[in-house]
């Protein structure tokens, strides 16, 4: 991976510069992140990238669900009669809104946890807004997941590709987030990894643990302590 900050040619069009940055995140994330910080790139760019990624991914998944539900409805039509599928457009709208909201919330929370750890525990220097931007760019490998889902949709036998792309995308995103934290706060790689991955995962595990404990106690109290 390149480690130098490359000056972008002034002759490049704006759209070309965006594509270069996107490719740069994948090929040379450190220099690209430094460039994003140095050039004070607008927050709109990573936001649009994230919205496009989750929008397309949701569209592919909803489309797949629609195909599956239509097939099931047709398969059962001799028993149930024609099942109206008008509700599906409502489901699609809810899915889009829900996924966008959840993504924005998760994006903010993960960045916030990393910011708190990097800034206040490891005494790094950097702003939360800048980290949000870099985290937005860090989601670019998620396009592999979209590719995997499309391949799976084309033929079910390609499911290993989906799994492979999913794993690669996740590892890549985690790596990019660590690099983003390191570049943004100027801390070492180990601390950046703790701030970007271990911290949010710990919070996630605590929340999940509390939730399961609550479910457990609720069921236990309902069954009079049998469970």
């Amino acid at each position: 991976m390149e480690k130098t900050v490359e000056d972008q040619k002034p002759t490049e069009s704006a759209i070309s510069r965006v594509f270069t940055r996107i490719g740069g995140v994948l090929l040379a994330p450190e220099s690209t992140y430094q460039q994003v910080i140095a050039n004070k790139i607008s927050f709109w760019e990573p936001l649009i990238i994230v919205l496009l990624l989750i929008g397309v991914q949701t569209a592919v998944v909803v489309s797949f669900c629609y195909r599956a539900v239509t097939a099931i409805a047709e398969s059962l039509s001799s028993i149930t009669g024609a099942i109206p599928l008008g509700f599906f457009s409502f489901f699609a709208v809810i899915a889009f809104i829900g996924v966008i909201l959840v993504t924005l919330v998760v994006w903010t929370l993960v960045a916030l946890i990393a910011h708190i750890i990097a800034r206040h525990i490891f005494n790094g220097q950097g702003s939360f807004g800048q980290l949000m931007k870099l985290y937005g760019y860090s989601t670019i490998p998620w396009s592999l997941q979209i590719l995997g889902t499309v391949l799976f949709g084309v033929s079910w036998v390609l499911w290993p590709m989906l799994v492979f792309f999913h794993i690669v995308a996740l590892f890549w995103i985690v790596t990019l987030m660590s690099i983003a934290v390191r570049q943004n706060y100027n801390i070492d790689a180990g601390k950046a990894f703790i701030a970007s991955f271990v911290g949010p995962m710990t919070v996630w595990l605590i929340i999940t643990g509390i939730l399961w404990a609550w479910i457990w106690f609720t069921i236990s109290s309902l069954t009079g302590g049998v469970v």
Partner: peptide, 27 residues
């Protein structure tokens, strides 16, 4: 290397386009 980055950027956009088109026409 800049051109490789730009090409990769185009690939990214192409994947999004493929995904969008596939979602629309696959049903």
């Amino acid at each position: 290397m800049t051109s490789a980055r730009t090409i990769l950027g185009w690939v990214f956009v192409a994947i999004l386009l493929i995904g969008g088109v596939y979602a629309a026409v696959s049903p």
